[in-house]
Design a protein around this nucleic acid. Structure first.
Lengths: 146, 146
DNA sequence: TCACTATTGCAAATTATTTGCAATAGTGTA
DNA sequence: TACACTATTGCAAATAATTTGCAATAGTGA
């Protein structure tokens, strides 16, 4: 309980530091994302929303602010639409997506820091890597059997 | 010269094996992608096209076929639109993209095979990874100075 | 509590991508 | 080479995702 409270407060801070306001809608959106435990698309967010959902436009704008505040991460699962996941208090990680059914599995941890250093070291144009997107694709056992 | 011819012929084969036809438009598209040496968006392809460009619809359809033939790879650079790059005779690799100006630098090689094995080993739902998308983001030196 | 400005909702505009259909062009076979 | 078969193309129109403008509303600091 207290921990949950604590997370909300830290998201607050992240937003404020970027000059964004902490609104009820954004908090509810964050709670929804945190709760789902999965990267969600805009449509999925609207479906899961309890009560009157915000306007789609608002959702896009909120997610952009949250993303810039690094409280939410925007990821691309090769589906052509954006997905968003809650990031505070969760280690950076990646996913495997089933090419057939779309099942998403989270992969614990990420060991690419060393690789980033190497890249920055040998690159001429880049001396700084802020982040990376890594997603794996394959077939889950259910879809392999079929 | 001969080498170039050779590459075209192997793309031919890849298309045919998937039951696709080798058309003039597709060959020209492949040549364009190969030549640019960069992942290109649909709009960029149209801009770079010499002579009367194909219809956008055709471009989408051709790129889909080429992608299925594994002669072209569709990648997501977090820009919201699809990018396509030529793959034959080139080792699998990734990119760094500048968050400010969009500069794309190719990173030679890819060392994720071992990681893929580990993942498959510890995953319950996935026993097979067919591919992965990995892109790094940062600021190029030009944009860092500004 | 008040003034200032970011955020929201709504309608409408963009932009990316897909679909249907008739005309055209590749491909295998004779 | 000619022919039949069917994938591909172009065009128009439909979807789908995302963005923009503007007035009303709500969060923030003083």
């Amino acid at each position: 309980m207290m921990q949950h409270k604590h997370e909300i407060i830290s998201s607050d801070k992240a937003l404020r530091e970027k000059g964004f306001r902490v609104t009820k809608g954004r908090l509810k959106l964050l709670a929804l994302l945190e709760h789902s435990g999965q990267p969600l698309s805009i449509q999925q967010i609207l479906t899961l929303w309890k009560g009157t959902p915000p306007n789609v436009t608002t959702l896009y704008r909120s997610l952009t602010s949250l993303n810039l505040s690094e409280v939410v991460r925007r990821i691309d699962l090769n589906t052509g639409i954006a997905h968003f996941e809650y990031t505070p208090d969760r280690p950076h990680h990646h996913h495997i997506i089933c090419n057939d059914c779309g099942t998403i599995e989270e992969i614990a941890g990420c060991s690419l820091r060393a690789l980033e250093k190497e890249i920055v070291h040998s690159s001429k144009q880049f001396k700084n890597i802020s982040t990376h997107n890594l997603e794996f694709f394959g077939h889950c056992i259910r879809c392999t059997k079929i």
